[in-house]
């Protein structure tokens, strides 16, 4: 697995559970606990070892933790960079949802060797009570990706100010389906997004 994924797990545990917990997890998973060394050292199976250690130490279901990781990646202040990159996906929540199948290609623009699932989105007939009903199909999947996506898309709905219900409605080995019911796309004020980072002007001027 890609070192950036291990880095994401480290950042998540450190930010949401504390550095002590991360040190315990790292020790158990036999990975370096240093936030930068984790990027340098890679052996096969490291990511699964970290996940197993997380399950043991935190006593939570793997799927719950991965969903939480997805939320962390999209919503935590430490991951503002990532949130911004996600917001490039669309001007509103519907645009964003419809751009999700482009996400793997976008990720590869920045990190060419990142393993990504194949994503498809399909519109379902919707009852009058909702503005849209979509299904996100996640296949040839690295295990766990669908749970991360679930948390991530849910957090992005908040970011866009949309009221949406998300559920994992189908899960087998390499085929996961997330149902996305958009109740109201303009439910709350979206968080701000400008094409350029607020503080990048100074850097550009240099």
């Amino acid at each position: 697995m890609h070192a950036l994924i291990n880095k994401a797990l480290q950042s998540y545990i450190t930010a949401c559970h504390g550095f002590d917990v991360w040190q315990t997890v790292a020790l158990r998973a036999r990975v370096p606990s240093d936030p930068l060394d984790i990027m340098l050292q890679m052996r096969p199976g490291q990511t699964l070892d970290i996940l197993q250690a997380m399950t043991d130490v935190l006593g939570q279901d793997r799927s719950v933790m991965l969903e939480d990781l997805g939320t962390f990646l999209a919503a935590h202040p430490d991951c503002e960079n990532l949130r911004r990159l996600l917001r490039f996906g669309g001007q509103n929540f519907m645009d964003f949802l419809l751009s999700l199948p482009d996400m793997p290609a976008r990720v590869r623009l920045a990190v060419p060797d990142m393993p990504m699932p194949r994503l498809r989105i399909s519109q379902k007939p919707r009852p009058v009570s909702m503005q849209a009903h979509l299904e996100l199909i996640c296949s040839t999947c690295v295990p766990g990706w669908a749970h991360v996506l679930l948390g991530l898309v849910r957090a992005m709905a908040d970011d866009y100010g949309a009221l949406a219900l998300l559920d994992l409605v189908h899960a087998d080995h390499d085929h996961h389906v997330i149902s996305i019911k958009v109740i109201e796309a303009g439910f709350a004020t979206p968080r701000q997004f400008h094409l350029r980072k607020p503080n990048s002007t100074a850097q550009a001027a240099q």
């Binding site: 960079n81 990532l82 990159l85 490039f88 623009l109 920045a110 094409l195 980072k197």
Partner: peptide, 13 residues
């Protein structure tokens, strides 16, 4: 937009 995205992703990396 892809270009701006790429510039930003690049600077993060």
């Amino acid at each position: 937009l892809e270009l701006l995205y790429l510039i930003e992703a690049n600077s993060a990396i």
